[in-house]
Design a protein around this nucleic acid. Structure first.
Length: 574
RNA sequence: GACUUCGUAGCUCAGUCGGUAGAGCAAAUGACUCUUAAUCAUUGGGUCGAGGGUUCGAUCCCCUCCGGGGUCACCA
């Protein structure tokens, strides 16, 4: 028995052995065919039903209330919880007369998976329950779960430490109500959008995650290396350029839920890997795409929540289409009083100064406008709003505006003060596209480390001709956050990126035996904190002797204590 | 990356103006065949995140490190 384990873990391991000794396999292989789920049993129960409904259910024990020869157990299955009533006389069998007293009462714990065959009834206290007639251990749990209790809608001892919840999401899912619900909603958002696209004949595609040129956005990429090709490869920051190649190739509409990777900061709205859905449709423009986008978002909201309103923090957001459309120039005019239309770079710098916006010399016209908007306007759009017609410098992949060459046909959908979606009438003029890339490159030489590489193959594809196309990208994590009312991206990702846990590296047992430590004393030394033999160097042998004899006694290991001379010899052997 | 704050039993948290720690739940033992945060009795459980310093003495004070949260920077 390892002394590394907590007392409770040791008890559970003892139970595990006891079960085996009694001929019970704590991890049986056989299928356990169930025919009911907790919630459905409760929903369809009728008090006057005779004979009583027989069910077979399985799940995890979440609480036990033992009263001598009878007990109540709360069983949690994938749908929810139901109470099970277990009595000695009902579950004991001739082959297993200790099923209740020993196997259930002594060797079954909170967290164990069990199977119950029985009939549905209502207890005197009024709770619909399953009266067990057969009890089966399906899987023994060796680590105690956090104990969360509920009464009258109040939660006690909630398991809410974010670190533990995100690192051990499986525990979070088991003990915290609503976590599973959030992720089911996430899946429903995807399903809703897929249906929406598929109904119109657009097809879901897959494009490379490993890219020789990280294009389609301005962001710092992750770099890796391909050995056989001996070249650097980048994890994608966007899939835009690949999807447009497919429109060149003749698809009417393509979309992809794209896992993107950006080597930037992490906080409650940014994870290094995140998901963006991008869709491109031929022969459309950004006006069409705005209608399409608001219908898509509205539908997703309704499919997930059954209503168009979601509470996010203190704000109530209404996703019912149509959404307001405001040009970027008008927005800046509205929130700053400055009309920036037609301004040159120096004039824009002046405006920034007057507005107390921090700027530096590397910023071009586009970046300056972006700063003003981001600083003064963006946060004001709580209800879904399209911001349209961005300055050309900010949008190298976007078509010039049909009436104003300074602007582009671009919109962003702002919700809750943040950008949610981004879309263009796609630039399909290959010569213009190449020039814009070159512009960006100049910016990058100026010091803007996010400006793009030039993807010449993409330009070549445009040279073959791309139909007029509109494309849109929407941040799925943010969309799910909005639709579930969560304010941290970590709440909508099963496994958000975390700094790796530090593992204490123990020296292997041989290292200890090499210096003469008997094998049974190795765990004792490690328990005493000497996880490497190097840490024994220069230790006072008397103190070490006392320490380890103390651990031996305290943990009732019943080892024969070594002599002081033996302990001395270990230390000397170093 | 910067600043700030936290890290005590399996879980949720007290606490020590510096003298090696407590509660509730969970666990163990016992009582109890309709309980539900079950109840009652008894008991055990902690290198007080890690390392160093100051001190007769550190979980507490100081420094460094590790991990988390928050704010900012960067971005979606």
């Amino acid at each position: 028995m390892s002394i590394e384990l907590s007392e409770q873990e040791q008890f559970r391991r003892e139970s595990l052995n006891e079960l085996r000794n009694m001929g019970i396999d704590p991890y049986p292989a056989a299928e356990y065919p169930t025919n009911a789920f907790s919630t459905e049993i409760k929903a369809s129960f009728k008090d006057d039903e005779e004979p009583k409904r027989q069910v077979v259910i399985a799940g995890r024990i979440m609480s036990r209330r033992i009263m001598g020869k009878a007990s109540f157990v709360e069983l949690q299955d994938s749908e929810g919880r139901i109470q099970v009533y277990i009595t000695r006389d009902d579950i004991n069998t001739e082959e297993q007369p200790e099923m209740y007293n020993t196997i259930f009462k002594k060797h079954t714990d909170i967290g164990d998976f069990i199977g119950i065959k029985g009939y549905v009834f209502r207890t005197q206290m009024g709770e619909i329950s399953v009266h067990a007639t057969e009890f089966t251990i399906l899987s023994k749990s060796l680590k105690p779960l956090p104990i969360v209790k509920h009464k009258d809608g109040v939660t006690y001892d909630a398991f809410e430490d974010p670190e533990q919840r995100y690192r051990q999401r499986y525990v979070d899912l088991v003990v915290n109500d609503g976590v599973k619900e959030t992720f089911i909603k996430r899946t429903k958002v995807y399903e809703s959008m897929r249906n929406f696209f598929n109904e119109q004949g657009y097809i879901e595609v897959e494009t490379p995650v490993l890219q020789p040129i990280p294009g389609g956005a301005s962001a710092r990429p992750f770099i890796t290396h391909h050995n056989a090709l001996n070249i650097p490869l980048y994890l994608r920051i966007a899939n835009e350029l690949y999807l447009k190649r497919l429109i060149v190739g003749g698809f009417e509409g393509v979309y992809e839920f794209s896992k993107n990777f950006r080597n930037e900061g992490m906080d409650r709205t940014h994870n290094p890997e995140f998901t963006v859905m991008e869709i491109y449709v031929a022969y459309k423009d950004y006006n069409w795409m705005m209608d399409f986008t608001e219908k898509m978002v509205e539908k997703a909201c309704f499919d997930v929540n059954g209503s168009y309103e979601v509470k996010v923090g203190e704000k109530l957001i209404n996703f019912k289409a149509p959404y307001k459309r405001v040009t970027m120039i008008d927005s800046i005019k509205e929130f700053t009083g400055f009309d920036i239309s037609g301004m040159n770079e120096n004039e824009l710098r002046e405006v920034c100064k007057k507005l107390n916006i921090e700027i530096d010399d590397t910023m071009g016209k586009g970046k300056l406008i972006d700063e003003i908007f981001g600083e003064k306007c963006e946060g004001n759009y709580i209800q879904p709003t399209f911001i349209i017609d961005y300055p050309i410098e900010m949008s190298p992949l976007c078509k010039r505006h049909r009436t104003n060459p300074e602007l582009t046909e671009r919109f962003e959908l702002m919700v809750n003060g943040k950008e949610l979606a981004n879309a263009y009438s796609e630039l399909n003029d290959p010569i213009d596209q190449l020039e814009r890339f070159q512009e960006q490159l100049k910016l990058s030489e100026k010091g803007d480390d996010e400006a793009m590489f030039i993807d010449l193959d993409f330009v070549r594809s445009l040279e073959y001709g791309m139909p007029p196309t509109s494309g849109m990208g929407i941040g799925m994590d943010r969309l799910v956050m909005l639709l579930t009312g969560k304010e941290a991206i970590q709440e909508v990702l099963f496994f958000p990126q975390m700094r790796p846990e530090k593992v204490i590296k123990n020296d292997p047992i041989e290292k200890y035996t090499e210096i003469g430590v008997p094998i049974e004393w190795v765990p004792v030394l490690q328990k005493a904190g000497f996880t490497t033999i190097k840490s024994l160097q220069g230790i006072n042998p008397n103190k070490l002797h006392q320490d380890i004899c103390g651990i031996n006694k305290k943990n009732k290991l019943e080892l024969k204590n070594p002599t002081k001379e033996e302990v001395q010899s270990w230390v000397n052997a170093l």
